[in-house]
Design a protein around this nucleic acid. Structure first.
Lengths: 162, 162
DNA sequence: ATAATAATGTGATGTTATAACAATTCAATG
DNA sequence: CATTGAATTGTTATAACATCACATTATTAT
């Protein structure tokens, strides 16, 4: 298990091939479990997303799909992204209109995203403490939470070596 | 001081005129303090936003500006919104691509938004607890926070009378 | 083989936001 | 008051993000 304890923000030189291949493998498992099909198109979209740890816009993904003469339309990408999000394989960052691969798919997690202003990397926090604190604060105001968008910008440890 | 203790989610029948006029008055004060000009255009945009407690898209605001034969362009609205956001009078909801009036301008607050799925109302939480919890969770991962986007959906007390 | 369902192809369109440059208004100064 | 520099607004075009609607193809179950 080479990457089970990857650093939270993988440093510039890390062996990214493993990140990507692990993500694809996990996706295959999850789709099988759910009786869904990880088609070639969907897999190519997922692979494009996993080219790095930075979020990609839908049209960035499209450009990668069509790099070698492909003729896909935006709709194809959005449909694949919807599928991947339904399966918890990809998240959308509302503050960026961009998409990022999920680092712990399968887990039923509440996600908070840490977005580095400097290198653009995104890490996925799954802090139950944050989740619960939000729930409590909302409840105090009589508000019953159904979903949370938490996106934090700042400087990651690779860019902020303090 | 008629509205200093407005309910967090103002109920359907509340005297909204006061909400709006208080917001405009506060805006005038803040602009004076900062030596900025709350021009007619900017004020009209702010008034449009304060027609209610639901977020409005930029083009919704534009439609209101142009209701009576106006000929404003989108750019005018976006520029006014930029000004109002710079002055802490308006917030943008990233998850909705929409804008909402700030309920406590002037205060230096970290904002979290509660968005009702049912009636569309938005309330602005300013929970220091949430803010600090996020900061701690991020710090544990070596991440230094500079900004936070926290947008929660669910059911407000007016729609969820439990 | 067939029929039902799922997935993809395709073109048009809708929605949100910004770029670039011109014209106007405002406010400070001599 | 006239001038001038800065701020604001006007205007046109375009970029960036996302969905609709309908046709076609592929997959699966029977």
């Amino acid at each position: 298990m080479p990457h089970k304890h990857d650093p939270f923000f993988p440093p510039p030189g890390h062996d990214h091939r493993s990140c990507a291949s692990e993500a694809i493998a996990a996706a295959e498992t999850i789709c099988q479990d759910r009786g869904s099909r990880l088609t070639a198109l969907r897999q190519r979209v997922l692979e494009a997303i996993w080219e790095g740890h930075r979020p990609l816009g839908a049209y960035d993904i499209l450009a990668r799909l069509n790099r070698n003469g492909g003729r896909n339309a935006p709709m194809a990408v959005y449909r694949a992204l919807d599928f991947l999000m339904d399966h918890g394989l990809v998240h959308r960052l509302a503050s960026r209109n961009a998409f990022i691969g999920c680092r712990h798919p399968g887990d039923d997690h509440s996600a908070q995203f840490l977005i580095c202003d400097s290198c653009g990397s995104v890490a996925e926090l799954a802090s139950d403490d944050v989740h619960k604190t939000i729930g409590r604060a909302a409840a105090k105001k009589g508000f019953a939470v159904t979903s949370e968008t938490v996106e934090i910008t700042g400087h990651c440890p690779n860019c902020n070596p303090s």
